[in-house]
Amino acid sequence: MIIFDSVTKLYPGGYTALDGISLQIAPGELVVLSGHTGAGKSTLLKLIPAIERPTSGTVQVNGQNVSSLSRRAIPYLRRNIGLVLQETRLLFDRPVIDNMLLPLVINGHPPKEAARRAAAALDLVGLSGREKEFPAGLSGGEQQRLAIARAFVNRPSILIADEPTASLDSAYASEIAGIFGSFNSAGVTVLVATHDISLFRQWSPRRIVLDHGRLMEQ
């Protein structure tokens, strides 16, 4: 369960990115977040893994008040959340396989198990056989798919993706949407910020629209 209670976020400089957001997301929901550029989508998503903290109001994730979580507790929160940020945040000086292994090692998986999971995840996003290549050698879409594979390789209970299909051509975009859809079908809570709602239509997602930091419709 993810609960936003009157959440306001002001960035330094005084810009109000989110303005009194209250909403609840039940476990296993598929939520599609849309809105114009600058509406506050990325900010809202970043509040869940405590990358940003609300200026006022509270954010709860699985019963934990994330908005006041201690520094020590944050890693354990994040291990349960798969993240695909707008900037892919790959390790560009490391081969594909190392990018995949990092979250598994952080989670304490033994090497064999980690290798097995990494291979399966890469297979799912169509990057099998590319293990030794470097991200710089991948196309924009392939980098995006790598970032997605890295996000779900740990089998998190919450999957958050910020415009994950933005740099993909339509064939891959629907395939990626399919991956999110099937994870959701398996019980994972999925939150996707996207301009392309139609991609997710077949899973009948819940739609949330932001406009200048305010909730428009649910």
Partner: peptide, 16 residues
Amino acid sequence: KNEIEVSRLLGATDRF
């Protein structure tokens, strides 16, 4: 810097 920040996002502890 990048590897540290990415690791943090993926749930790495300070110790790690």
